[in-house]
Design a protein around this nucleic acid. Structure first.
Length: 511
RNA sequence: GCGAGAGUAACUCAGCGGUAGAGUAUCACGUUGCCAACGUGAAGGUCGCGGGUUCAAAUCCCGUCUCUCGCUCCA
């Protein structure tokens, strides 16, 4: 991921979001909490719009996709079974010199490979690479002596079990003597820390007495709720494979490195859909959903040239996935993930079946076969999608010598759909404008404003991306028409004030 | 956790030993006939927090907290 390509746009956007109350630091009066954000009046409208559009796209448009709202707090065993307790509780070793951070197991496997190359070089009298001297000489000599001893007692090739044994002992030595280990990144010795635990799930206790027996976790993904409920949802809604369960909800992760505004936060909101399919059909469905999801981003006005697919290489797959694709957007801070479309196979349901002892199979009437459905998931970040749309919509231009900032948001996601202004407050124009606004209110979020000059009022709406402004002027009193002013082009047109509702329906439909 | 930077009005910042300032924004009244107009007025700050030096600290010293960025964690 490229860093700070245009720090400018991000900081301008963050400032705009705060200034207009779209998104801002949470609990700011107490100095804020690291990487938590609150969504102000325009922000929550926009976020709700995105969530609603996703929900409509999933549950309204697909007969075989149903909604669910499962709890944030699930049984702790759900997270043991899903692999999150293990996977989200990892040991890291850091180099104090070069600041590189290694997962313990990664560092140990690097050390192991170096050592294997080292003894290979020794045995075959090849030159030893300094890089492979991963621990100080006195430790290595110990093993070399042991090797040489073994060779003198049993001339010829060393047995595999002897090699395995010595390698495993070596790894144990590394674990206990990190002070003598050389950092594989900067090649300096003596700077590695002891392994430290990084707990990545939020923990709490249920019940008034705090002890280990009532430990619970906040969900780090919404998906597991859909898996554990899959039978009851399928049976109660009489669904047949293939079918999907959709859910929007908060998830929590103690990220090591949150940042980039609302891109990575510890509390965030996911829009996930788990699609249950016949074994062997995951590839086709993966293709289908990739296409669907791509089109969804385009339908909200995202720039196609700033979107791309990125496939996870086999060795970097999440622990649950067999094949994983990400929709990425070119943010000001680089290409970053918006959504993952994953083939999770039977991993989750099978694990839950084994751990819970409950039957997770499905009887397929058509095929006369019983199986554990396989899962293709689409997992999108709501906050990230909103950030993407804000970045994509941010514009600056110059109008009559004055600079202007506006958000060219698609009307579907814009927080306020229309602004209603009287040209001036006097001569009864304000009363007419109020009546127009009151008529529209309730059908769409509209904003009435009579404060300041007309130009200032247009600019204020431009900043939050309001697509249309309707101005009541003196001509309105004569013929009942008002001015429609377009946000992006500043063009104006006159329409009858009774036609404003029809105009809005025509532009983006009812909500 | 480690490294770097930053904390003065809602925002951007000036002040850098002598009792807190500007511009913008906000609000009120007037004015204003379509793109950040003008006039008058108002409101808004324990200068992140604690301690020290000093007759006197936003300013110097020490400590501390918070935020931002980086260290691949992922939606």
């Amino acid at each position: 991921m490229a860093k700070n390509k245009t720090p400018d746009l991000m900081s301008k956007l963050v400032a705009l979001c705060k200034r207009r109350g779209i998104v801002f630091q949470s609990s700011e009066i107490y100095g804020g909490v690291g990487s938590t954000f609150d969504y102000g009046p325009p922000g929550v409208e926009m976020k709700n719009n995105i969530a609603r559009l996703w929900w409509q796209d999933m549950t309204f448009r697909h007969e075989n996709i149903v909604g669910l709202d499962s709890a944030v707090i699930l049984h702790p065993r759900v997270w043991e079974t899903s692999g999150h307790v293990k996977k989200f509780h990892e040991e890291f070793i850091e180099c104090r010199n070069c600041k590189k951070r290694f997962k313990s197991e990664d560092l140990f496997s690097i050390a192991k490979e170096s050592f294997i190359r080292y003894i290979d070089a020794h045995l075959h009298k090849k030159p030893i690479q300094p890089k492979d001297m991963i621990i100080t000489g006195e430790f290595l000599n110990r093993y070399i002596n042991e090797l040489d001893n073994e060779l003198s007692q049993h001339p010829g090739e060393l047995s595999d079990s002897f090699i395995d044994n010595i390698v495993n002992t070596f790894v144990d030595t590394i674990v206990r003597n990190l002070k003598h280990v050389t950092c594989p990144n900067c090649n300096e010795t003596g700077f590695l820390t002891d392994p430290r635990n990084f707990q990545l799930m939020f923990k709490s206790n249920i019940g008034v007495v705090e002890d280990e027996s009532n430990l619970i976790f906040f969900r780090p993904e919404t998906a597991q709720g859909m898996y554990v409920d899959y039978r009851i949802v399928q049976e109660s809604s009489r669904l047949k494979v293939p079918f999907g369960i959709a859910q929007i909800g908060k998830a929590f992760r103690i990220e090591i490195t949150p940042g980039n505004f609302i891109f990575r936060t510890r509390e965030f909101e996911q829009m996930e859909m788990q699609f249950f399919v016949r074994p062997g059909e995951t590839s086709e469905w993966l293709q289908y959903w990739k296409e669907q999801r791509w089109n969804w981003y385009l339908s909200m006005g995202a720039s196609p040239d700033k979107l791309r697919w990125a496939q996870h290489p086999q060795d970097k797959l999440p622990h649950y996935a067999r094949e994983a694709w990400d929709v990425e957007y070119e943010f000001p801070f680089g290409w970053s993930e918006l959504e993952g479309v994953h083939d999770r196979g039977e991993y989750d349901l099978k694990a839950h079946q084994e751990a819970s002892g409950k039957d997770m199979t499905y009887f397929d009437d058509e095929q006369k076969a019983r199986y554990i459905p396989h899962i293709v998931e689409t997992s999108a970040g709501l906050n990230r999608t909103m950030l993407m749309l804000l970045c994509d919509a941010y514009r600056e231009d110059v109008q009559a010598g004055e600079s202007r900032v506006y958000l060219a948001l698609d009307p579907k996601v814009a927080p306020v759909k229309a602004a209603i202004f009287p040209l001036v407050k006097k001569d009864g124009l304000a009363e007419i404008a109020r009546a127009v606004a009151d008529d529209l209110r309730g059908r769409w979020p509209v904003f009435y404003d009579a404060q300041g000059s007309i130009g200032r009022r247009y600019r204020r709406q431009d900043e939050i991306g309001t697509p249309y402004a309707f101005t009541i002027d003196y001509q309105t009193k004569d013929d009942g028409t008002v001015t429609v002013r377009w946000r992006d082009t500043l063009e104006q047109e006159r329409i009858g004030k009774d036609r404003i509702g029809d105009f809005l329906i025509e532009k983006f439909g009812r909500l």
